[in-house]
């Protein structure tokens, strides 16, 4: 078990249009939609504040019980994902509150823009996670990342994850009573190391 580490990682600038369209629920974009995404990104770009913290934890699995030392959880799917791993990296990532503010703003005046901003925020925070997992993969043999809410991994595990990572203190993510993260464009996940 080790202490929480902060990184200065950033994904490459720009965005993956295909992913943004996927998050926006759009298979075949019109010219106007692609233009709208471009305009929205220009507005969003300077407001993105990428932050990520992580911590290495020990791991013991018995059946569907995953024990990380400072907390444990029952999940068949996570246990399957982490099978054969000796330790695990838990991490939390966010693009910051300004994205939520801009989504809130357009939610009131332009649902189309709100939808695109939402999709861009999701694409950006996932891009940050991808970047982080890439750096991990360069150092360790890693499993694909696995987040609370996937499969049978209960959302309730967020509470323990947040305590272990001290997310609010380190990168400003807090958890509300419905176990939702604020800022909303945030991700937490487990990455198994074998």
């Amino acid at each position: 078990m080790s202490a929480v580490t902060l990184t200065n990682l950033k994904p490459a600038e720009g965005y993956c249009e295909k992913e943004v369209l996927r998050y926006a629920g759009c298979k075949e974009p019109t010219e106007e939609i692609c233009e709208l995404i471009k305009v929205c990104y220009e507005e969003l770009e300077d407001r993105l504040t990428y932050r990520l913290c992580y911590r290495k934890l020990s791991l013991e699995i018995s059946d569907d019980h995953c024990d990380f030392g400072c907390f444990s959880v029952r999940s068949r799917d996570l246990a399957k994902n982490l099978k054969g791993c000796k330790s695990v990296i838990v991490f939390a990532a966010t693009v910051g509150v300004a994205t939520d503010r801009i989504i809130a703003r357009y939610n009131r005046v332009s649902p189309a823009r709100a939808l695109i901003m939402q999709a861009l925020g999701a694409e950006r925070v996932e891009a940050l996670c991808d970047e982080f997992c890439k750096t991990l993969a360069a150092e360790y043999n890693t499993r694909p990342r696995f987040s609370p809410g996937y499969g049978d991994l209960p959302l309730a595990v967020q509470k323990e994850l947040f305590a272990a990572l001290e997310c609010y203190r380190h990168i400003g993510i807090s958890l509300n009573e419905s176990l939702l993260m604020a800022p909303s464009k945030s991700v937490t996940a487990f990455v198994g190391i074998y």
Partner: peptide, 11 residues
């Protein structure tokens, strides 16, 4: 027609 376009038209 997909959601973003529906919304743009609605706006």
């Amino acid at each position: 027609v997909y959601l973003p376009q529906l919304l743009m038209s609605a706006e």
